[in-house]
């Protein structure tokens, strides 16, 4: 097993192999995610995005290979307060208010009411903070779930489809927040099946059927495929692989 992670990689994956329910979901993947960037993980659902993210946060049983996160094997105890993870479905308590949800997850990483108030403001929920999550809209609910990951001020954020179902204004605001976090030195790995979010990322990883089709900047991918949008580039790469 080689382990030659580039200096400063936030995530370094070598020959990651995952089998779920007898199916090979990730067949020996290599991937490096540089620190301090927003890396978009794009591809159709069922392509292995969520499995890859779960392997990075240490929640996925893996069949082989290595995953190093911030210099430690994925799932190490030292990483637990340094990674923020947002699952695709909001994983929060619907009977608690937004503030109570954030306060609960904040205390798991030793943060208090100040961090909660700041985070509520960041996710634009300061006004709805004291309503039970079950009375919030789907978009507000997914922002509470995001807030529960942000509240501990983690170095690495792993966000599984954080903008799905949000209106364009909210998506713009959230991407603004992601850029702020990136500018503050955080690393973000953001998955999406919406190709038009490609231009908002510093780097893109195209993934389909567990295979990485491309791992580069948006500009380089467009130049390489001779296309002018992410959808066309993705199709070109799919066809190239099939050929």
């Amino acid at each position: 097993m080689r382990n030659n992670a580039p200096e400063g990689a936030a995530i370094s994956i070598r020959a990651l192999h995952v089998i779920r329910g007898g199916n090979e979901v990730l067949p020996h993947i290599d991937l490096d995610v540089p620190r301090g960037q927003i890396v978009g993980l794009l591809g159709p659902s069922g392509g292995g995005k969520t499995t890859l993210m779960r392997a990075i946060v240490g929640a996925q049983i893996v069949a082989g290979g290595s995953v190093e996160v911030l210099g430690h094997p994925a799932g190490s105890a030292v990483l637990r307060s340094r990674i923020g993870y947002v699952t695709q479905a909001p994983s929060i308590y619907p009977d608690l208010t937004a503030r109570e949800n954030l306060a609960y997850f904040a205390r798991t990483v030793g943060e208090g009411a100040d961090a909660v108030a700041t985070t509520l403001h960041h996710i634009g929920l300061a006004d709805a903070a004291d309503r039970p999550v079950s009375t919030l809209s789907g978009g507000q609910e997914s922002r509470v779930s995001l807030g529960a990951a942000l509240v501990g001020d983690p170095e690495l954020l792993v966000l599984d489809e954080p903008t799905v179902g949000l209106d364009p204004a909210l998506r713009r605001d959230l991407w603004g927040l992601f850029h702020e976090l990136r500018d503050a030195g955080k690393t973000l790995l953001v998955s999406s099946h919406v190709m038009d979010e490609a231009s908002r990322c510093d780097r893109l990883v195209f993934i389909r059927d567990g295979a990485i089709l491309a791992d580069d900047t948006f500009e380089s991918i467009l130049a390489d495929t001779g296309t002018d949008n992410a959808d066309a580039a993705f199709l070109a790469l799919t066809d190239r692989r099939a050929a």
Partner: peptide, 11 residues
Amino acid sequence: SGTLERLMVGP
């Protein structure tokens, strides 16, 4: 609901 998974990823 995924809340346990979130907790288990944390401390």
